[in-house]
Nucleic acid binder design. Structure first.
Lengths: 104, 104
DNA sequence: TGTGCCTATGTCCGATCTGACATATACTGC
DNA sequence: GCAGTATATGTCAGATCGGACATAGGCACA
């Protein structure tokens, strides 16, 4: 993984467990965090494509605007569950979900 | 969704919120639960393909045998996060994850 | 039948995540 | 400038999820 990307991730507040190399991420840690970021981006893209506000999406998933903002920011305190549920609430199919995840 | 499948899901202990029709699942609820089952199946398949025991996988992800069993059973008390992390720990790439999700 | 191994299920309490709220920042149009 | 709207960020009590543990069921092979 490129240093630039790593710094982007670490800047978001991720404290990474057991560094294999100093401040490094293991492959699976990296895959996990990249996955989250892809979901976050997909969420934001889909929401704005629909012309929805964060508040509107929040209501649709019975959450709050602040949590939607955190989701889209890739905040470590939001779960994959919530992000996935939100994408589904935005009308994404499992197949579209897969596309978001597989995307480079 | 076919009634047979619905019963399969409900039998696993899912209590579904706000039934649109009596005992029915909305599209997004169904997609969410199917997603979980796919991950559960993928997890079990991948683990046994590697000849690992649940206990061995548990150690690899610093979890416990009981939780691995629940994961593979699609138990509602395990999060997507844990299932995804476990799949990644089994060496699955994000792309393989996507394949599991997109599978029929 | 017993011993051994793997998996399933239930319960507990400590850790993590959640919605709600407050507040801040940013960008409009007036 | 100010009001209105959208988004970002921090905090907190309550809800959910976590590993650990106990225990049961299943299946093999002596």
């Amino acid at each position: 993984m490129r240093v630039e990307k790593r710094k982007r991730l670490e800047a978001k507040g991720w404290k990474v467990a057991g560094p294999k190399e100093l401040l490094g991420l293991s492959d699976e840690e990296a895959a996990y965090i990249e996955l989250r970021l892809k979901l976050a981006e997909g969420l934001k893209a889909r929401r704005s494509a629909k012309g929805m506000t964060q508040t509107a999406l929040a209501k649709a998933v019975r959450s709050s605007q602040s949590r939607v903002a955190k989701m889209e920011a890739g905040d470590p305190t939001v779960s994959l569950d919530l992000m996935v549920k939100s994408l589904l609430a935005l009308g994404a199919s499992n197949r579209e979900l897969a596309n978001i995840i597989a995307r480079n």
